[in-house]
Design a protein around this nucleic acid. Structure first.
Lengths: 345, 345
DNA sequence: TAAAATAAGTTAAACGTTTAACCCAAATTA
DNA sequence: TAATTTGGGTTAAACGTTTAACTTATTTTA
């Protein structure tokens, strides 16, 4: 493979000239430029990263950090975000180095190797991580951007899901189908995303002038997995059997809801409508497939990369917060009550 | 951040000595070593990749290539492989640079940027890729290893699924449960993996002394998606209604089979048993969940990284082929006919 | 016409390592 | 004792770029 020296020799110029041509510096005349470019093509020259890195003190790499937990999640949520980031990184000529950290990362632990070896120009943190890793990275004075995580300070650019409007959209979809007794099922309500979905639900009910009682329509569990959805809907229906529609705070819980209703012979959507949030793969294989609120994971990855690129160009770039919009996906697990023939009394 | 110079000054030795200590070269006395190591700790020194790369002519990176198609697959098959590779790479102090190429990659197209920029020491290719990309990479004289793809020559280390034994295992599992009329459903039989699963099926039937007629038990479609499974089982049951168990060549088709049987009110596993191959997430949300043959994607990623590390150490390393074993996962979609009470005639 | 500005290129230092070649003192050998 | 080996380190070149500072020739200005 040819180096800048080979090109210089071929074009009969100094290596500096070659470099200047490559960087389209205007000090070089058009003819020389042409001659050099011809040599570059002839020798199939591409500047080597290794040389460039050393002198420019830039690696051309971005670190992408997430926890083992998230890394090993069965639903490929963060994986998708990563793929979006990787794709967008090409537009900026960056490479992404992905690594995971233990979810119980401690200040005593080594920071990721790419930080120690100065092998990244910036770091993207995806999902919830221990604060200790953040303070570690701050020590190395690296630009940081977050995606799907509320960072501990306002200093950082961040990409978040617009959970409030998603919660509203799901609820309003049910309201438009003439549902009035709408249950909301939450797991860990302390989680910011879940809480915001709940807020969206409340706002939508409020705007529509629909009454709701927290006692009847919210059921708390500590986690948001399938079994919690199963248990939650069970409790909810025990204390309120007028419910015609259920909005589960995420698809994992929604699937638990579906399992419970199936077992009890309660037909979806004929007896009870169900809508979830996240739009994961598993939704498609339910019968009927689950209506849900799509979270654009790939696009989130793209957005956070854009923020990072901004930040690298201009360290004082505004620390933007981006809320990505969600989209309602109707797959038939919601019944339109307007069309339903009323049962004889 | 401190450099080798800072350490040298601190320890009052030359930078060469620091380097030799870092590399545990035996030319340095124990005392000097200790002094240098103390300085290294004090200054929190870690050799910079950029410096090291340039002189060693090694990047410390491995390229990971797959096609857009595979990259965007809804089932995270190659993603899992990638994650395994990334994880294992840490043990060898390598980073993985992931990139995709168009599935219609042409010789005229640019090779991935990390190749042009000499930013990788070797390349791992995952899944089926156009041969043109392989010959392109060969030009750059980079070590290549394959995973889940039969490379066009014997020159390369490769990690493959042991499809034949998987096909046998699935079939033998059905045979053990006393099934005798076992249908096999294949999509694209021209695909090496599918064909090998079919061979496993045939061998198992043969060993068990069970007769089978290709006309009755094989149904061809061009693809292996859900709708093909749906269509295939429909045709299969039209020409043969003695079948008590169906082995679908992959889970996507198996899910199509399940959908068809559900629609027709044919109970799984009471009327017909079903087993798939791949063990994808969606299997769990079926009712009953699908029994399948688990493919250890993560482990495949690990294995291919090991082969790559071997290859980088020793360019003449044996070009091993590794067949990773699969594992039968029983989730209740198969009925044990031995226990079934015979219907009164 | 002399001085100043400009255009177009070159020189050389620097980035942070690794490592072959070298050096010197002390120990060993003949 | 003189020559040789060994141990323990240092010197300096090299890797492939970028870029500030410099040079030289030409053009512009006063």
């Amino acid at each position: 493979m040819s180096t800048i020296k080979d090109v210089a020799k071929e074009a009969k110029v100094s290596i500096a000239t070659v470099s200047l041509v490559v960087h389209k510096h205007n000090r070089i005349s058009a003819e020389t430029s042409k001659r050099v470019n011809k040599a570059i093509k002839k020798l199939n020259y591409h500047p080597s990263r290794s040389g460039r890195r050393l002198v420019s003190q830039k690696t051309g790499n971005i670190g992408f950090i997430l926890t083992d937990d998230h890394f090993l999640r069965s639903e490929p949520f963060y994986t998708r975000i990563f793929l979006g980031t990787e794709f967008e990184a090409r537009n900026y000529e960056y490479y992404i180095l992905l690594t995971t950290i233990p979810s119980n990362y401690d200040v005593k632990d080594h920071p990721p190797r790419f930080i120690l070896e100065k092998n990244v120009d910036g770091v993207i943190i995806a999902g919830k991580v221990p604060v200790s890793i953040i303070s570690q990275i701050e020590k190395y004075n690296l630009p940081i951007a977050f995606v799907d995580f509320y960072p501990p300070s306002n200093e950082y650019p961040v990409v978040l899901i617009d959970n409030i409007s998603g919660g509203m959209a799901a609820t309003q979809f049910l309201i438009k189908k003439n549902h009035k007794n709408i249950g909301f099922i939450a797991g860990d309500i302390g989680h910011p995303s879940i809480y915001d979905r709940f807020r969206g639900y409340k706002m939508a009910m409020d705007y529509a002038g629909l009454d709701f009682s927290e006692l009847n329509y919210i059921v708390d569990e500590n986690y948001t997995a399938r079994e919690n959805g199963y248990n939650a809907v069970k409790k909810l229906l025990e204390i309120n059997n007028d419910i015609t529609a259920i909005f589960a705070c995420n698809d994992a819980m929604a699937i638990g809801v579906v399992q419970f209703l199936n077992e009890k012979g309660i037909s979806i959507p004929n007896d009870i409508s169900v809508i979830g949030f996240d739009d994961v793969e598993a939704d498609l294989s339910l019968d009927p497939p689950l209506s849900s609120v799509r979270v654009p994971k790939y696009e989130m990855g793209i957005e956070v990369m854009k923020l990072m690129a901004d930040l690298l160009k201009n360290k004082d770039a505004t620390k933007k917060k981006i809320l990505v919009s969600v989209e309602l996906i109707d797959r038939g697990s919601v019944m339109d009550l307007t069309l339903k023939i009323p049962m004889p009394a």
